[in-house]
Every structure is written in structure tokens, then in C-alpha cells.
């Protein structure tokens, strides 16, 4: 896969706008993101997306100036430990009900285009 230099900026430099112009996404960046997100996009769509994403990242850029040294990241709304449950079957088999709403099934299997030759 083609490597994008912008994705390899050293850690420190990422916080320095002069060294790191990543607030402005290129068309290639947007194309890469669309591919990672599994979204087919035409060229005009990519261009429109780039402009809008750049506006949004302009809004987000405000965050970069905040000194967060020593602050613990808050990953969740409540500081509670993840609850664990016993490893046992709790759900009944509803295969027919689930497959009834699938786009394409055959013999109880979900059909997708061939992936292995």
C-alpha cells in the first residue's frame, strides 16, 4: 500500500503547527480515510468532503493548545470497573428470525461475493 508521509509525523512535531500542517487534509488523505471507512466516493464527493472536513478540523484544532500534561484520559462517563458476567449461554437460538431480515441467505448461510479463489 502507498504510504502517506503525513501519517508518519514524529510525535512531538504533531503538536507544532509550523512543523505539522495536518489541519489541512489533502485529497489523498480523504481518499485514504474513505477507503478505511469502506465508503465509495466519487471525485466531486471527495473534494466536497475535504473542504467540509477541513472546516470541522479547524473547529477541533482549538483543542491542541490545551496543556493536558498529567491528566488521565476519561474514557467513560462513569469511573466504574467493567462488569463481568459468567461465561454461560443466555440467549436462545433465533437463527431463522435473524436470517429472515438478511439481504441474501442460502442453506442457513449469509451470502457474500466470493473471497477465496
Amino acid at each position: 500500500m502507498r504510504r502517506n508521509k503525513r501519517f508518519m509525523i514524529p510525535y512531538r512535531a504533531r503538536f507544532d503547527k509550523a512543523l505539522n500542517p495536518f489541519m489541512s487534509l489533502s485529497l489523498a488523505d480523504v481518499e485514504k480515510v474513505a477507503r478505511l471507512a469502506r465508503l465509495a466516493m466519487t471525485d466531486p464527493e471527495l473534494q466536497a468532503a475535504r473542504d467540509q472536513l477541513n472546516n470541522i478540523f479547524g473547529l477541533i484544532a482549538e483543542m491542541q493548545a490545551v496543556d493536558t500534561t498529567g491528566i488521565e484520559p476519561m474514557s467513560h462517563a462513569q469511573d466504574v470497573a467493567q462488569r463481568l458476567r459468567e461465561d454461560k449461554v443466555t440467549e436462545a437460538n433465533q437463527r431463522e428470525a435473524f436470517q429472515a431480515i438478511a439481504p441474501q441467505v442460502e442453506n442457513g448461510l449469509y451470502l457474500v461475493p466470493q473471497v477465496i479463489e
Binding site: V66, I71, E72, P73, M74
Partner: peptide
């Protein structure tokens, strides 16, 4: 390459 600058920084400011 962007995880720390965006996601982690946002989680810290969330606190």
C-alpha cells in the same frame, strides 16, 4: 499517527 493528538487529547480534556 493521529490517535494521541486527537482522541487521547480529547479524552484528557473530557476529564
Amino acid at each position: 499517527g493521529y490517535y494521541d493528538a486527537y482522541y487521547l487529547q480529547a479524552q484528557k480534556i473530557r476529564r
